[in-house]
Simulated scan of single mutants.
Amino acid sequence: MKTIYHAADRRGHVNFGWLDSHHSFSFGQYYEPEKMNFGVLRVLNDDIIEGGTGFGTHPHDNMEIVSIPIYGALQHQDSTGTNAVINQNDVQIMSAGSGIKHSEYNHFKDKETNFLQIWVIPKKRNIQPRYDQKTFDPANRENKLQTVVAPDDESAAWINQDAWFSLGNFTSGHQADYTIKKEGNGVYAFVIEGNVTINGQSLYKRDALGIWDTDKLNIEAATNAEILLIDVPMQLI
């Protein structure tokens, strides 16, 4: 088993006033050669957007872009004709494929929105751009893991990659096991809230642990905790 630990306070950080963002991997003005990616996971940004502001229309191609609101809501528009609000307990994925333009704004004028912006390198390039969004009942992740992104599960948001995202809300003292979905994959575990131990490593709010060359994880909640597991191929195509 191999691991890499990313402490919350070692992430990249930018604050533009309207946007306060922490970067788990090199992004924009933040460059750290040892933090370019975890397998095909390329970006994990923890973004707080001020009310009434957001990202204007901009292009992407050949990237799987996942948005997970922690609190608040996002107003999304893109060149596929999609116009949607992404609320807490929603997961949105945009397959940029051959090219797409989109904008994302805080849906609220008077309060912040916090969301995770995650980029995954796709399995197939230049596909037709695609949008998917699903709502997930948080009751279905109480003391267990709920799959929210998958290439092979109609109940989850579809992704153009052999990647699976799972969310879990655990009460203090609860344990759970997770089996990695595909041989050659690893898992990037990101703690949204609380304190957990994963395969013996203590993790706190916004810490992360990458694990590979194993087939199973053990998760134990030291406090009430919320976690995200990102199960991805370790080999870049």
Rank of each mutant, 00 (worst) to 15 (best):
Y5E: 06
Y5N: 04
H6S: 06
H6Y: 02
A7N: 08
D9Q: 09
H13Q: 08
V14K: 06
N15G: 13
F16M: 12
F16R: 11
L19N: 12
L19E: 09
S21E: 07
F25T: 10
Y30W: 09
E32H: 06
P33S: 11
V40A: 01
V40S: 03
N45E: 09
D46A: 06
D47Q: 03
I49V: 15
N62L: 04
N62D: 15
E64M: 02
I68V: 11
Y71D: 14
A73G: 04
A73P: 07
Q75G: 12
Q75L: 13
H76E: 13
Q77L: 13
Q77C: 14
T80W: 00
V85G: 09
Q88A: 10
N89V: 06
D90S: 10
V91A: 04
I93H: 02
A96T: 07
A96V: 05
G97F: 07
K101H: 12
K101R: 10
S103Q: 09
E104F: 02
E104M: 06
N106Q: 10
N106D: 13
K109D: 15
E112Y: 09
I118C: 06
V120F: 03
P122M: 03
P122Q: 01
K124Y: 14
R130N: 08
Y131N: 06
D132H: 08
Q133P: 11
K134F: 00
K134A: 06
T135R: 05
N140Q: 12
E142C: 09
L145I: 04
T147G: 04
V149A: 08
A150H: 09
D152E: 15
D153T: 13
E154Y: 03
A157C: 14
Q161C: 01
G168S: 08
S172A: 14
Q175C: 09
Q175K: 07
D177P: 08
D177Y: 00
E183W: 01
A189W: 00
V191M: 02
I198G: 02
G200P: 03
G200T: 01
Y204I: 13
W212S: 15
D213T: 05
T214M: 05
L217A: 07
N218T: 10
E220M: 09
T223I: 05
E226I: 07
